[in-house]
């Protein structure tokens, strides 16, 4: 079945899963989708969030995982700088990275939605940290979190959106620039 035949929510799920895997692959992290999981993350310690709005949907993208996974997913050039869960400033440092990582994931999603004529406006990213973070079930139609594993860590991706019933994801727009692309004027 081609993407064009999928209902919007399923197409969004597919797009978000693909872009999450691609985002972490850029940091040399291989993610495996986890179909069977509990109702809440078992070990979430950090979460990054970005709000978005458009004509056809609005909500929040949040990614939640462990200190370890966020530390391992830093850009290669600075990944060797040691961080410790026992050092308070390292939590602040990884909160900064969790924010940016979420921002980059939302950028990917946003850039793919451009081709469907959906233009998202996004907030500046934020993050939170704690121990065994738990999240309320989203109130919108888009309720199922996407869960992945890497080594012993789980990654939870929440796309908590209110989607207008008339939303149709039909390819129609000009393609956005790709990640890593350089355009000189």
């Amino acid at each position: 079945m081609s993407d064009a035949g999928l209902p919007p929510v399923q197409l969004l799920d597919k797009l978000i899963a693909e872009q999450t895997i691609a985002q972490f692959a850029a940091s040399d992290i291989e993610l495996t989708p986890l179909e069977q999981h509990g109702p809440q993350p078992s070990q979430a310690e950090l979460a990054g969030m970005v709000g978005f709005t458009s004509e056809s949907m609005r909500g929040t993208v949040m990614i939640a995982s462990t200190f370890s996974l966020f530390a391992r997913s830093r850009p290669a050039a600075i990944r060797d700088q040691p961080v410790s869960a026992y050092v308070a400033r390292d939590w602040l440092y990884l909160r900064d990275w969790a924010s940016e990582l979420t921002n980059q994931l939302v950028g990917r999603i946003k850039n793919r939605l451009v081709t469907f004529g959906v233009s998202l406006r996004v907030s500046t990213p934020t993050a939170l940290s704690g121990s065994a973070l738990a999240f309320a079930t989203p109130t919108s139609k888009r309720t199922r979190p996407l869960v992945f594993t890497s080594e012993r860590d789980e990654l939870w991706v929440f796309f908590d959106a209110i989607i207008e019933p008339e939303l149709e994801l039909v390819p129609q727009g000009e393609a956005a620039a790709e990640e890593g692309e350089l355009i000189l004027f």
């Binding site: 980059q104 790709e178 350089l182 355009i183």
Partner: peptide, 12 residues
Amino acid sequence: KGWMVKPFKPDL
């Protein structure tokens, strides 16, 4: 003068 999309390749 230009536009580059993150994540970026350091060499580029």
